[in-house]
Amino acid sequence: MQTQIQQAVSQISHVILGKEQEIKLALTCLVAGGHLLIEDLPGMGKTTLSNALATVFGLGFSRIQFTSDLLPADMLGVNIFDSQRQAFSFHPGPLFQQVVLADEINRASPKTQSALLEAMEEHQVSLDGETHELPSPFFVIGTQNPQHQAGTYPLPESQLDRFLMRIQLGYPNWQAEKDMLKQPRQKDVRPLSPVISPAALLELQQHLDEVHASDSIIDYILRLVTFSRESEHFPNALSPRASKALLQSARSWAMIDDRDYLIPEDVQAVLPAVAEHRLRSTLTDHPTQTSLSQLLLEQVDPLAA
């Protein structure tokens, strides 16, 4: 299993150069069964990443471009009267795919946003009194553009933590970008092949709880969240939901590393992605400040028995 995941990482790394860490985090998020928020400027490879993720797992993929006039029905689907059968039949929208890229999520109206967030939370869609199950696994990758905020509806703080992780891809480093530029044009969209079956992914998700979290690790997580609650450096503290998310993600990270128990490094690896958007509501508030999750990590000793 581990080799397969390694393969997946290396495959995607061929598409997005020099971003192994971010790719691994995205995989972690997928295995942990959470949703991913990518906050970055256009042209950084958000779409490529999500497409690649869907492909290597052999999952169905759809992309929804969010605009202010996008209505919930455009995304969820509609009931259309079938004159032959004399009944309404449900036409699923683009959301009924296993991997959904919700591009520029903050451009949609709050109504559409909340419809998406609800579907993410519930793993199902309710329409005209009927409930439609979403496919499993169901993985939403939302993207947000931190600049050009005019005419956007930033996601409400209270709903930001529906996303398990938030990552930023950032610019590639010199060498990676150089390699990319040197690639022949055709190879730019090098075909990917599925490495892990969706069934295997589901199995991974089910075995997540078997990754052993010792008391020392749980204490470490508790110390981290408690520190965020007590210290005045953090405007928003980490909630119990956040500590649960942290444990879940760390387990998933350990699983990808093929370890059946957690060590502090697992927590440290996922903490910035899991905690940053919960500690600070929007990027716009402090665009220049150092990362709060880094600050948090540096204050807490993982060993203290």
Binding site: I263, P264, E265, Q268, L297, E298, Q299, V300, D301, P302, L303
Partner: peptide, 9 residues
């Protein structure tokens, strides 16, 4: 050891 560093690191 910096006090925040994990054992493996």
């Amino acid at each position: 050891r910096p006090h925040w560093m994990g054992p493996e690191d």
